[in-house]
């Protein structure tokens, strides 16, 4: 739907130098949205309408609160669009399209492992909340640059969920030093040993991941190796955000080896990891 969101909170998230923002919008989208979906926000300084930037900005939902009619968007200021968005003040209305795309699907039972790289953690928070509401066990693997980033990007909120956290930082200032995929690999081999095997042992594990493409590709390879189903949330430059312009395609391969294009905005952004062709288009 095309609707408006009233800005009820718009604040700096964590340390100022991380350039992260938390934006809470009141409106009808919360009633129907699910984790993994996104909104397309019209980014305009309402005092000076302009066409630069021209396109809406797709931003994932970090929290969905249907009882309060609120959605939370977390984002990093990294270009003209987000720079202008960051000026939106409480009380302003932002034009929104959404909820858009296909979100994550939750298993009925078992354990959900979330694997996040950097600000890819944002949409996984909404997923963690739904999974916990449904009584699933949730574990987060999260890698970031350093301690300051992880704390700024919402670590306290994750700690409040009281779930197991496997943290890594590139400089070792928090959690393990290294990549998030190393922690995932460690945990997988602890459970399943070093050889590929069917994920039939109890509990059933499912993985959902969001982060840089290379990271998600590595996560997918690990999961495929252990026959663990994995959902990935892809990112691509979007035009229309509703599947009309074919600007944001990705390539999938099915079991028969047939390649096809899917629209990240409409068919995704969440896809089954094992179906994604990571090294570009055909």
């Amino acid at each position: 739907m095309l609707t408006e969101g009233l800005v009820v909170v718009h604040e700096c998230l964590g340390a100022a130098d991380q350039r992260l923002r938390r934006l809470v919008l009141k409106g009808p989208i919360a009633k129907t949205a699910k984790a993994g979906q996104f909104v397309a926000v019209l980014v305009q300084d309402s005092s000076i309408p302009s066409y630069d930037p021209l396109l809406r900005r797709p931003i994932s939902l970090a929290e969905i609160s249907p009882d309060r009619d609120e959605i939370t968007l977390l984002y990093r200021i990294q270009g003209r669009g987000t720079e202008i968005l960051a000026r939106a003040r409480c009380g302003e209305q932002l034009s929104l399209m959404g909820p858009l795309g296909q979100g994550f699907s939750l298993p009925e039972v078992g354990e959900l492992w979330l694997v996040a790289g950097g600000i890819g953690v944002f949409p996984l928070y909404a997923l963690a909340q739904s999974a916990l509401d449904q009584g699933l066990n949730v574990r987060l693997f999260w890698g970031g640059e350093n301690q300051s980033f992880l704390i700024s990007a919402g670590l306290p909120a994750w700690q409040a969920l009281e779930i197991p956290l496997n943290l890594s930082t590139l400089d070792g200032t928090l959690g393990e030093r290294g990549l998030v995929t190393e922690q995932l690999q460690g945990r997988l081999s602890e459970l399943f040993g070093h050889t590929k095997q069917e994920n039939t042992s109890s509990p059933q594990i499912r993985v959902a991941t969001c982060g840089p493409k290379k990271m998600m590709q590595a996560v997918t390879e690990l999961c495929v190796n252990y026959a663990v189903p994995v959902q990935v949330s892809l990112e691509e430059r979007m035009g229309c955000a509703v599947g009309a312009c074919l600007g944001c395609v990705c390539t999938l391969i099915d079991k028969a080896g047939t390649l096809s294009h899917k629209k990240v905005c409409q068919d995704g952004p969440v896809f089954r990891g094992e179906e994604v062709v990571w090294d570009g288009l055909c």
Binding site: E236, R237, M238, G239, C245, L246, G247, C248, V249, C250, L259, H261, G280, L281, C282
Partner: peptide
Amino acid sequence: LGNSVPRLA
């Protein structure tokens, strides 16, 4: 199948 991404700027 069209061109590779990025397709938009």
